[in-house]
């Protein structure tokens, strides 16, 4: 399933160190999180869309992979619009629902902000290989290598588990467990199938752990066959991230829409 999101091939951004990419994206995210306003979100969103070709993503691919995120952002905006404390003219008032011009603006800003936070993560992951990420986390961020590599190895089994999920579904149908029926029956069938998968997953992981230990894994000292490195490109990534964040804030302050979350929610 992960393959659906990670692109093979060498785009410019895929050559940057995962850690710097992460820091850049996180910076943008934090800045956007501080304010709910449509200006900062729109500016950031615009820059992000410009960057997508550098990660090898086309608008079509983006839509195919990103539509659930877009839908989620829309829903988030809706719930904020009807639940935020009302300010300005009341536009709609039905029982517990009420939308005012103030809450609508908040909802809209919220929706755009949601997108501007979600999309760079898609960008980040579509140009980052998990193996490179693990190398960077263990060698550069100095996270304990046993945990990083154990997780990386476990991740490899996930694709396998997706296949096994399908096989178990068929195997259970061959035993008379239907995946069709009332919602309750379907929930029960799914729980049973999940349990079957969990058993296989733990068996496999236990065997994988034995394989890893038998290859000497688990000691304190280890060398790295491939070095995780920084290059001048990483400076550009950091500068780019900072510029986008700064541009978003500057535009919002300039337009007078900068609206700190705590202030916005009173």
């Amino acid at each position: 399933m992960r393959a659906a999101l990670t692109l093979r091939g060498e785009s410019l951004l895929s050559r940057a160190n995962p850690l710097t990419k992460f820091v850049a994206v996180f910076l943008i995210t934090l800045v956007l999180a501080l304010s709910i306003d449509w200006v900062s979100a729109t500016v950031a969103l615009g820059f992000e869309l410009l960057l997508f070709p550098l990660a090898g993503l086309t608008p079509l691919l983006l839509w195919q992979r990103g539509w659930p995120l877009i839908l989620a952002a829309a829903l988030g905006g809706w719930s904020t619009a009807i639940l935020a404390p009302d300010t300005g003219t009341i536009l709609l008032d039905v029982g517990i629902w009420s939308i005012s011009s103030g809450s609508l603006e908040l909802g809209l800003g919220f929706m755009l902000r949601g997108l501007a936070i979600a999309l760079p993560a898609v960008l980040l992951m579509s140009c980052t290989d998990p193996t490179d990420l693990a190398d960077a986390l263990a060698q550069k961020a100095k996270l304990p290598h046993r945990f990083v590599l154990g997780t990386l190895a476990a991740m490899r089994l996930v694709g396998l588990m997706a296949e096994e999920w399908q096989t178990i579904g068929m195997a259970r149908r061959a035993r008379g467990v239907g995946s069709r029926g009332t919602p309750l029956q379907r929930i029960r069938a799914t729980l049973g199938q999940s349990f079957g998968l969990l058993v296989q997953a733990i068996r496999r992981a236990s065997r994988l752990a034995v394989t890893m230990e038998a290859r000497g894994f688990g000691g304190a000292q280890r060398t790295w066959a491939r070095e995780s490195t920084y290059s001048p490109l990483d400076i550009w990534v950091l500068v780019g991230g900072t510029l986008i964040a700064a541009a978003a804030v500057a535009a919002a302050i300039g337009a007078g829409t900068w609206n700190l979350v705590w202030a916005a929610t009173g």
Partner: peptide, 25 residues
Amino acid sequence: PETQVILSRLGDDVAFGAENLAVPR
């Protein structure tokens, strides 16, 4: 066989044991 493979790239997988024994790069 699925649990005898540890990493997702061929070379990395072969190198894994040697890395754990702290063999020079």
